[in-house]
Design a protein around this nucleic acid. Structure first.
Length: 625
DNA sequence: CAATAGAGCGCT
DNA sequence: AAAGCGCTCTATTG
């Protein structure tokens, strides 16, 4: 390792790294929002490539030695606890960030492959120092690589290092708060992260090719580029959010009083044990469902039969709806001035989309998770989604695939009633209902369509007859009869399921399947001797095949959209089968066309049934055109 | 006091 | 014997 503390060393390092075709790098960040690339401060940067690893500190406050530990003291006059910070000896002289980033510019903005572990974090963290312009492709990401090579393994560079090299380091999690640690410890940690990341890259990159994942890798790196673009964030209407907070707080107070009045006492509505005591004790309700640990469940499903029959149940359900929205989507975003920090920076949220962490290849999303916003059809969902606030002169474009999972199923199952239904332009659930109940599509009732929907769930998720019965409010007997008829009308679907399972189970060294675009899903439990685990893996085969292919299609659409964006157009969100973007108002129609083309254009007809999407132009989510 | 597990609930 | 997620709250544990 070389510690870089003067400009001569820095220039020399840049020269060496520029002479290589690729390098790994890692940032250590600090500040109140160290985990938010849009606003954190980069305090260290380390780089590793062939024959060299360097660490560049840029103002670490601590020296090598701790002189006095941090402590607290009670102020006798005020009675308040006073925080006394730790004392360290002087840190070595270090380069200023501006000097370092000036020197690194020709490297970071070169055509060399920039590799990191969770690269969007590092790339977006440094982008701030270049007016928000992120380094250009090509990219490499060892966490994405590791995930593609084994989606069933614990993640993290440290876990990989332990697994591959037996290397155990950073047991104190230095990166979580570098300013608590001495200079030497942070320097070592920063160095090891970059150096082992580089080694991991050298190890894994050829494996991607060897496992037949080259095309998928190209797609994921294009997706990574798109995520950097999306790093600009989603503008939100803070005033509307604050008004919503006021409304919800008032509403919650009322709901709370209703619960206490109905129950005849005050208790903690958020406490499951207390709710159990009231509902199944004092109110004398019969438990309809048990929790994992065998306690009487108080979830919405268990209480549903008592809705409209028991005033306490009604009051609790009303309270919970409001409470969920307020705590998760309103105070969760604004912060509550205490333990909850704000998630809005410069009027924008920066949802973190991760390319890893879901076994099927979907994105996961956090801080905030915009993939679980309440549905636009609900009162509060409308209010939450309307918080997305295109900047002045811009409009919102929202598009989702129509029944994409059913279309994927039809594609895999091949010719048959489902397949034909899509070519005839019939709604899939209506077509299913028509066939199962032996009526014309126009005679399908709401109830019939509801049952068809339940059947679709049964296929995709492997649900049993009992679940189908519960979902469609019918008897087990009737559900079984309906499923038999479904199998008779759609034999190709069941043949597809059986054949897929057989093929996947026979693969060695361990069973795996490939999605539409070649992503791998390993299911070793298909060979497990435990019946329960094996059955679960069997359900996962069909689900992963369909859900994973859906993820492939959406990711490809995202990349196509990113490559065809109009000037000023920005991709905001993606939610599994949905993409939202922001577009200058004067090119709204063209923007909608670009989005439509990216998602469902000629080259996106990857299935043997048509794929369609519906693009809406609006200023607010709820006023969809 | 901080960390974790469990229950519950929002979404596709 | 229903697939895949992340967040909040409470209760429990160290």
């Amino acid at each position: 390792m070389q510690l870089i503390t003067d400009t001569r060393q820095l220039e020399e390092a840049v020269r060496h790294f520029r002479a290589q075709d690729s390098f790994a790098f890692d940032v250590e960040t600090t500040g109140a929002y160290r985990g938010v690339p849009a606003v954190n401060e980069v305090a260290w940067i380390s780089l590793a490539t062939h024959g060299s690893s360097v660490v560049i500190p840029m103002g670490h406050p601590n020296g090598y030695n701790l002189l006095r530990k941090a402590t607290r003291r009670k102020n006798k006059a005020t009675g308040q606890w006073e925080h006394i910070p730790a004392q360290w000896d002087e840190p070595p002289a270090q380069l200023r960030p501006s000097v370092v980033f000036d020197a690194l510019e020709e490297l970071l903005y070169s055509d060399r492959t920039k590799i990191a572990h969770n690269a969007p974090f590092d790339l977006l963290s440094v982008a701030k120092y270049y007016k928000g312009k992120y380094p250009p492709p090509p990219y490499g990401d060892t966490i994405v690589a590791a995930w593609m090579l084994n989606e069933n393994r614990a993640l993290g560079l440290k876990a990989l290092d332990k697994e591959r090299y037996g290397l155990v380091y950073d047991t104190e999690e230095v990166g979580k708060c570098i300013e608590k640690h001495p200079f030497g410890v942070v320097a070592d940690y920063s160095y090891i992260d970059a150096a082992t990341d580089w080694l991991q890259w050298l190890h894994m990159r050829p494996m991607i090719t060897a496992e037949g994942l080259e095309d998928m890798w190209t797609l994921e790196m294009d997706v990574l580029h798109c995520l950097l673009h999306m790093g600009a964030g989603v503008p939100v209407d803070i005033e509307a959010l604050k008004q919503l907070r006021t409304r919800l707080r008032e509403r919650l107070t009322d709901c709370e009083a209703d619960v206490y009045r109905a129950a005849g006492k005050v208790f903690n509505i958020g406490s499951t044990p207390q709710k159990q005591a009231i509902l199944y004790g004092e109110q004398g309700l019969r438990p309809r469902k048990l929790t994992k640990k065998g306690a009487p469940s108080t979830d919405a499903e268990a209480l549903a039969p008592y809705a409209g029959r028991n005033p306490v149940v009604d009051a609790i359900l009303a309270y919970q709806e409001v409470s969920k929205i307020l705590s998760t989507y309103v105070e969760g975003y604004l912060g509550n001035g205490e333990d909850k920090p704000t998630q809005i920076f410069n009027g924008r949220i920066h949802p973190m989309l991760k390319q890893f962490g879901t076994v099927t290849g979907r994105f996961s999303c956090s801080t905030p998770n915009v993939q679980n916003w309440p549905r636009a059809e609900t009162e509060w969902g409308k209010a939450i989604r309307d918080l997305v606030d295109p900047i002045p002169g811009y409009v919102l474009l929202v598009a989702d695939y129509a029944q994409i999972e059913q279309r994927i199923l039809a594609h895999f199952a091949g010719k048959g009633a489902l397949w034909q239904g899509f070519w005839d332009g019939v709604d899939a659930h209506t077509a299913t209902a028509a066939a199962v109940f032996g009526v014309a599509p126009e005679d399908v009732t709401k109830q019939m369509r509801q049952i068809a929907k339940a059947i679709a769930f049964a296929i995709n998720y492997g649900a049993g007859a009992q679940k189908v019965a519960d979902m469609s409010h019918t008897t087990l007997r009737r559900a079984k009869q309906i499923l038999r008829e479904h199998e008779k009308q759609f034999p190709e679907v069941y043949r597809y399921k059986a054949k897929l399972l057989r093929t996947v189970r026979s693969r060695r060294p361990e069973p795996y399947l490939r999605t539409l675009l070649g992503r791998k899903r390993r299911l070793p439990d298909l060979l497990n001797h435990d019946h329960g685990l094996r059955a679960k893996a069997e359900r996962q085969v069909v689900n992963s095949h369909i859900q994973g292919s859906n993820a492939d299609i959406t990711k490809l659409a995202l990349v196509r959209l990113h490559k065809s964006l109009l000037p000023g157009m920005q991709i905001l969100l993606t939610v599994h089968d949905e993409i939202a973007a922001m577009c200058p108002a004067d090119t709204a129609e063209e923007g909608a066309k670009v989005l439509q083309e990216a998602m469902a254009g000629q080259e996106m007809q990857l299935l043997s049934v048509p794929v369609t999407t519906d693009v809406k132009i609006c200023h607010r989510w709820s006023e969809a055109k």
